[in-house]
Nucleic acid binder design. Structure first.
Lengths: 231, 231
DNA sequence: CATATGTATTCTGTATACAGAATACTTGAT
DNA sequence: ATCAAGTATTCTGTATACAGAATACATATG
């Protein structure tokens, strides 16, 4: 829980936007990315001296960031032995996806009730962009828009706690999904499910949307599963 | 995510159980309790020097624990101004309870499918103890057993991620519920709901159990709500 | 050659030191 | 007396220092 770091300096002149991200946040985001993108593979010990040198900071703020990541579950603290990038078993990933599914279904029902038409159209925009990236075969952009859509849907439920826990699990699973390069056929089916999602959302058909989401995440698991050696 | 701190030394002789809790954990638990029990009221700034002196540790491990709590959402980090105990609005609390409800319902359904009869009887034990404490008017013990039952139910679903997020939210609302001294009538109705829960669980009636849980947490909100001034 | 033991090195955990920002206080002016 | 400005103090954020544990290495032993 970090306060919105005075995002932009909205001086009367509308002058300069200061990107001042506290060092703590910078380190945190940097480390998280390193884990998600696989630069720090599961099971690897985090050497504070080395990483600190690499990022150009001392061990003190680095350790604080590591503690934060530990609470997020991306890293495991082993007494007197430092931190290790958390490994997730196949079952753990399956479990996480199941909870994510439950959360998204709950969010979806609520969203169908309270979301404004404008908000829904914003999701539609993301969706259309995603389809465009899909047609161009741009996996990374597709992946990010995909995440944004799911997060956006959850946000429509207007429930901070829901967003929190969804984000938490989403982050844990990111690393796996980031690697999960599915074949063209599976990719196509995922896109088809998203099309269904959008129409259900626009029709505010809660039951139908929830059902599709359940199916979507079930299939997400089946798409990811084969790529896991459960290390 | 902290490794099980070699809980007990299970040497062949079954000798000594070492309670060695890392300092980090000790500080963390201590701080959490201080927040939950209201010694550190919402909105209060955490003075590192003072708290450090009080706990007899330097600022370094203390700050690490604070970062951990920040990730848990009990504390808010304000750049260049340290940490503040998080205030929750009435809506935020309501939202949290709603998510907890969703999670527990999901857990309940799964539990009805896979829990062993023995595991269910363990919950029954907690329940009976809780009733006993209720009849003795022992609020604190009742409260703790109540928490244990809900956590136990979630544990039956055998899903680590589910336990994680449930614990997270449970911890956040603990402070509010800890204060929430409901009157005898409301207390009685809460107990009645628990009785219903137990019979539904023992009958493995998933729909019924989920329905009761939904109602139970809805009422939990109504029981807590009046005591909030939304500070 | 494999294994065990003792030593050297690395790394973590905690305390301390220091710089800069935020807060409290004091002094002066209206 | 109230408010403003400047100064003093406190507190946070980061770096460094040091002790003890863990690991790696080397040497000795069967």
């Amino acid at each position: 829980m970090i306060a919105p770091n005075s995002e932009l300096d909205q001086s009367p002149t509308g002058a300069i936007k200061i990107e001042r991200q506290s060092l703590h946040d910078a380190i945190l985001n940097r480390l998280r990315d390193m884990i998600i993108e696989g630069h720090l593979p599961p099971g690897m010990r985090l050497n504070e001296g080395q990483i600190g040198a690499q990022l150009g900071v001392s061990r003190t703020p680095l350790r604080e960031a590591i503690k934060f990541l530990a609470s997020e579950g991306l890293v495991e603290l082993i007494p007197a032995r430092g931190a290790v990038v958390k490994k997730f078993s196949a079952k753990e990933i399956s479990d996480m996806l199941q909870v994510i599914s439950t959360l998204e279904q709950h969010a979806a029902r609520r969203a169908c009730e309270i979301a404004t038409t404008y908000q829904i159209s914003a999701i539609r925009d993301l969706h259309d962009q995603m389809i465009d990236r899909y047609e161009h075969g741009d996996r990374l952009a597709y992946y990010k828009l995909n995440q944004a859509i799911h997060s956006g849907l959850v946000a429509l439920a207007d429930n901070a706690a829901l967003v929190d826990v969804h984000t938490l699990l989403q982050t844990r699973v990111k690393r796996i999904r980031f690697i999960g390069h599915e074949g063209p056929d599976k990719w196509a089916s995922a896109v088809a499910e998203h099309e269904e999602m959008m129409t259900a959302l626009e029709a505010r058909d809660a039951d139908r949307l929830a059902a599709i989401l359940g199916k979507h995440l079930q299939l997400a698991w089946e798409r990811v599963k084969p790529g896991l050696d459960d290390r």
